[in-house]
Amino acid sequence: MIRIPEGPFTMGLSDEQVLFLLRSEDWAEEWQEWYDNDLFMVEQPQHIVYVPEFYIAQYPVTNADYFAFVWQTGYRMPRTWNGFYYPDGTDDHPVTGVSRHDVLAYIEWLNQQTGLKYRLPTEAEWEKAARGDMDARIYPWGDEFGLWRCNTKEGGKFSTTPVGSYSPSGDSPYGVADMVGNVWEWTSSLFRPYPYSAIDGREVPNDNEKYVVRGGSWYYSRKLARCTVREGVIATYTSPALGFRLALSP
């Protein structure tokens, strides 16, 4: 677990960054024209959010991590596994094919095993861990996309990769790995408009609403592998491109 210090950070995408993407990325103009800017607007407005100190896992939960849970409890297998086991050679790949309910069951089991209180990160915590404090970088490493820094469609892997494969070049300012690309990650937050506030109800679980997932994945292009990209999915949703990582309050 990596400590993320308390304090403010810049959350969301600014108008200036939209203009930068329009100048530097061939996909950005299509987003703006085809969807009347809606796909950028869900990441706006950019605003300052204060986040208390917390800890976040350096890597997403892996197949081997999750297998220990399944083996001990008899819990159902992820849909992406082959029968009773994950695919050969993928023990250190992020576990995928897990719904929010599956994730919470794993966390409950882990907390019983460790005596700690692991949880999912809020989307504000996730974004701060991904981009740092106040420089509002577009990617964990800066403002320019780097093909060798993360596992996206452009890299041609067409599957998950071992966690940490792109470290340290793809790490966040705090040293957190795989924050973009490889797999989308569940957060605890409901998918609601900005500005973000932890006390406006979006951190109160409600399976009648969608939950925020973050980070893009191997299945999608670099357009979704940005620190500010947010998608909403229902609690029962599973995908071979969706996993999770743990957070912990001090």
Results as ranks from 00 to 15, higher is better:
residue 105 A to P: 04
residue 106 Y to V: 08
residue 106 Y to T: 07
residue 108 E to V: 04
residue 109 W to N: 09
residue 110 L to R: 14
residue 111 N to H: 12
residue 112 Q to R: 15
residue 112 Q to W: 09
residue 113 Q to N: 08
residue 113 Q to A: 12
residue 115 G to K: 08
residue 115 G to M: 09
residue 116 L to W: 12
residue 117 K to Q: 15
residue 118 Y to L: 03
residue 122 T to E: 03
residue 123 E to Y: 01
residue 124 A to V: 00
residue 124 A to P: 04
residue 124 A to Q: 05
residue 125 E to R: 03
residue 125 E to Q: 15
residue 126 W to F: 05
residue 128 K to G: 03
residue 131 R to L: 00
residue 131 R to C: 00
residue 133 D to K: 13
residue 133 D to V: 11
residue 135 D to T: 11
residue 135 D to G: 01
residue 135 D to P: 01
residue 136 A to G: 12
residue 136 A to P: 06
residue 137 R to N: 13
residue 139 Y to F: 15
residue 140 P to Y: 04
residue 140 P to I: 00
residue 140 P to E: 04
residue 141 W to L: 08
residue 142 G to Q: 08
residue 142 G to F: 11
residue 142 G to H: 08
residue 142 G to N: 07
residue 143 D to P: 06
residue 143 D to K: 04
residue 144 E to Y: 10
residue 144 E to H: 13
residue 147 L to A: 06
residue 148 W to A: 14
residue 149 R to W: 06
residue 151 N to D: 14
residue 152 T to S: 15
residue 153 K to F: 14
residue 153 K to P: 02
residue 153 K to H: 12
residue 155 G to E: 15
residue 155 G to Q: 15
residue 156 G to A: 13
residue 156 G to Y: 13
residue 156 G to K: 11
residue 158 F to T: 10
residue 159 S to M: 13
residue 160 T to W: 05
residue 161 T to I: 11
residue 161 T to M: 15
residue 162 P to L: 13
residue 162 P to I: 10
residue 165 S to C: 13
residue 166 Y to M: 10
residue 167 S to R: 11
residue 170 G to M: 11
residue 170 G to A: 11
residue 172 S to N: 13
residue 173 P to I: 10
residue 173 P to M: 10
residue 175 G to D: 11
residue 176 V to N: 12
residue 176 V to T: 10
residue 176 V to P: 14
residue 177 A to V: 05
residue 177 A to L: 05
residue 178 D to Q: 06
residue 178 D to L: 08
residue 179 M to C: 13
residue 179 M to I: 07
residue 181 G to M: 07
residue 181 G to A: 08
residue 182 N to Q: 13
residue 183 V to Q: 08
residue 183 V to G: 09
residue 185 E to V: 06
residue 186 W to M: 04
residue 187 T to N: 03
residue 188 S to V: 02
residue 188 S to C: 05
residue 189 S to D: 02
residue 189 S to A: 02
residue 189 S to P: 02
residue 190 L to W: 03
residue 193 P to C: 00
residue 193 P to G: 00
residue 193 P to A: 00
residue 194 Y to R: 06
residue 194 Y to I: 01
residue 195 P to L: 03
residue 196 Y to Q: 02
residue 198 A to K: 04
residue 200 D to W: 01
residue 201 G to L: 01
residue 202 R to N: 02
residue 202 R to S: 02
residue 202 R to Y: 00
residue 203 E to Y: 02
residue 204 V to T: 14
residue 207 D to T: 14
residue 208 N to I: 02
residue 209 E to D: 14
residue 209 E to F: 14
residue 210 K to D: 14
residue 210 K to L: 13
residue 212 V to C: 06
residue 213 V to Q: 07
residue 214 R to L: 00
residue 214 R to K: 15
residue 215 G to M: 08
residue 217 S to R: 11
residue 217 S to T: 14
residue 218 W to D: 07
residue 219 Y to Q: 13
residue 222 R to P: 00
residue 223 K to P: 03
residue 223 K to N: 12
residue 224 L to W: 13
residue 225 A to H: 06
residue 229 V to S: 10
residue 233 V to Q: 12
residue 233 V to W: 13
residue 235 A to N: 07
residue 237 Y to E: 11
residue 238 T to M: 04
residue 240 P to I: 05
residue 240 P to V: 05
